[in-house]
Design a protein around this nucleic acid. Structure first.
Length: 275
DNA sequence: CTTGTACCCTGACCGC
DNA sequence: TGCGGTCAGGGTACAA
């Protein structure tokens, strides 16, 4: 799924399209995208007629705040949105539409998801508050200091790459930005979090925020499946220094970038300058 | 408690 | 052209 910069890009795209609109009809083509296992008919009944007050983000989740409850969505690996007029979105790549939400201005919000790993939850405020309490701090919040990152990371002995992706420690960081931030901070991804020095935590804090911010400026990384709203691509992939670049020379020291597997996912790093 | 592994699902890609 | 294996930016349930 898209990570923090991608989900935030989608949020910025969707907000002006959806805020103030009313949902007039809902069509669900695959019940398995209703994550809380609400029957499709019940999900529809509870959504139709609702007003969308605001579009927010927390970690990698999008929140459509309604006049009654919150429609929470998670795109996981291949979820996408489009807003358009007509029965089928006029776009390449929308071949697996799983849900459609008609709006009161005559347009439709389409949700497409090839693998159907993503989907929706319809929650009350207290239910969302409970879900939300599991997330660590937002790394781009102005109040998020190096000391906060240190506190979040220095628990147990997990490899720092795994810890960065743990949503209960820091919210919104996934596989791409974990690798990129560690490379920029010159930290070996296999290092146990308990061994990081204060200086290394400060470097990681700075690198992580810089990378997330500049990716956001590029509308995210379209490496494979991710698209912003209506098929728009991000461009940060041209600025990736290690992700997907195994076998190429490190831009910093020239050594060959390696791919290893941590917690079942690919990690890319430079054994020359990441210590 | 923390950490690792299997799994959900489909499609793209690579080597033979 | 076909076939099998591997991989994919995520998160969860469950095991150790």
């Amino acid at each position: 799924m898209p990570e923090l910069p991608e989900v935030e890009t989608i949020r910025r795209d969707l907000a002006p399209e959806l805020e103030g609109r009313r949902i007039t009809a809902v069509r669900i083509h695959h019940d398995d995208i209703i994550i809380d296992a609400l029957p499709g008919a019940e999900f529809r009944r509870r959504l139709e007629g609702r007003h969308i007050l605001a579009v927010d983000r927390r970690a990698k989740w999008l929140l459509l705040r309604l006049d009654l409850g919150i429609l929470v969505t998670q795109l996981r690996m291949t979820g996408r949105f489009a807003v358009g007029r007509g029965a089928v979105p006029p776009l390449a790549g929308f071949r697996h539409v799983a849900a459609e939400f008609d709006l009161d201005d005559g347009r439709t919000l389409f949700y497409d998801d090839v693998r159907r790993l993503g989907g929706f939850l319809l929650l009350s405020e207290p239910e969302w508050a409970l879900e939300e309490s599991r997330f660590g701090p937002e790394p781009l919040d102005s109040g998020f200091r190096a000391a906060d990152l240190g506190q979040a990371l220095r628990r147990g002995r997990a490899p720092v790459k795994n810890a960065l992706m743990d949503q209960s420690r820091v919210a919104g960081v996934g596989n791409i930005y974990a690798s990129e931030a560690l490379h920029r901070a010159r930290i070996d991804p296999t290092r146990p979090v308990s061994d990081l020095t204060d200086e290394e935590v400060r470097r990681l804090h700075r690198s992580l925020r810089r990378i997330l911010r500049s990716s956001l400026d590029s509308s995210g990384t379209t490496f494979r499946d991710y698209r912003a709203v209506n098929g728009r691509s991000g461009s940060f992939q041209t600025l990736l220094e290690v992700y997907g670049r195994d076998g190429e020379p490190c831009t910093n020291c020239g050594q060959v970038i390696l791919r290893i597997v941590q917690a079942g996912r690919s990690t890319y790093y430079c054994p020359g300058c990441q210590r």
